[in-house]
């Protein structure tokens, strides 16, 4: 069985600040990390490998050369192979072009039985790339997995949506997007680091390697145009309710009702 985990390198948003004027992230000097949910997706793949035995786990990213560091980290965590789709022609991709490029790269490293993605990236945050890859490849998709049970032929996935839980299964090949509730990612081990730097490496894929339609990649292949990005003004004005116990409690109740914060009786 061959599992591919798609991994995006993102800025550590704990450390990121937003340029108030342009509305964009200030990326300078911000450490790059593996998108957190992708770490959970990788962990899920490694667990399936441990359970089923004969499984190869490959990681795939599209990004600039430094995204190779994040793939190295995935190799240290235990992935068997890593590919980085890296080409100037891929730059400026929106989610559609990103998904198309990743789908074509997946075709190149086929046969693939199971694709695991994070549900969403902490910077772009659209949660579109996984589903779009599945559409490009014409394979079933199951989103927001909180539990995955894989066999040679199929995958069964449980997801939680508030009060509702959903359990669906799909024949392989299939794509599953993974949320944080699914597992607790392992730590990198010293042995894993030694092995990754001794025996493994990141293989580059250019636009030539993966036979893409040049009209569907990078900026050219991106129909989205961003009109404006801005930081929403979050007013945090406190309101003081004065008076004796009775006025005070009524005041609180009325305020909560006005804000729709109390269950309707």
């Amino acid at each position: 069985m061959h599992i591919v985990v798609t991994i995006k390198q993102v800025p550590d948003t704990n450390e990121v600040r937003i340029d108030k004027k342009t509305g964009t992230l200030i990326r300078e000097g911000v450490p790059a990390i593996m998108n957190p949910e992708d770490k959970h997706a990788l962990e899920a793949a490694l667990c399936i490998r441990e359970e089923l035995g004969d499984v190869k786990v490959t990681v795939l990213s599209m990004g600039p050369p430094q995204a190779g560091n994040t793939l190295m980290e995935a190799l240290c965590l235990g992935a068997d192979e890593a590919f980085l789709a890296c080409d100037k022609a891929f730059a400026g991709a929106d989610t559609l072009a990103t998904a198309y490029t990743l789908a074509m790269a997946l075709k190149k490293i086929a046969p693939v039985d199971l694709v695991l993605c994070g549900s969403q990236a902490i910077d772009g945050d659209t949660a579109q790339v996984g589903p779009q890859i599945a559409e490009c490849l014409g394979i079933p998709q199951i989103t927001y997995a909180e539990r995955i049970k894989a066999s040679e032929k199929s995958v069964e996935v449980e997801s939680g949506f508030g009060a509702v839980r959903r359990r669906v299964s799909a024949d392989l090949p299939a794509l599953v997007t993974v949320g944080k509730a699914i597992n607790r990612p392992r730590y990198k081990t010293m042995k894993g680091i030694a092995a990754a730097f001794r025996d493994k490496g990141v293989q580059l894929l250019t636009s030539q390697d993966i036979k893409v339609n040049p009209g569907r990649i990078g900026l050219t292949g991106s129909p989205t145009s961003v009109k404006k990005t801005f930081v929403p003004e979050l007013g945090r004005a406190g309101r003081i309710i004065d008076g004796g116990p009775e006025t005070l409690s009524l005041g609180i109740i009325h305020t909560l009702e006005a804000e729709n914060l109390l269950p309707k009786s």
Binding site: N69, M72, E73, C76, Y187, K188, T189, M190, I193, A194, A196, F197
Partner: peptide, 14 residues
């Protein structure tokens, strides 16, 4: 080198 940086990152996280 990158290996040493990876060791640092791994142990720091832990």
């Amino acid at each position: 080198d990158e290996k040493h940086e990876m060791v640092r990152a791994a142990v720091r996280e832990f």
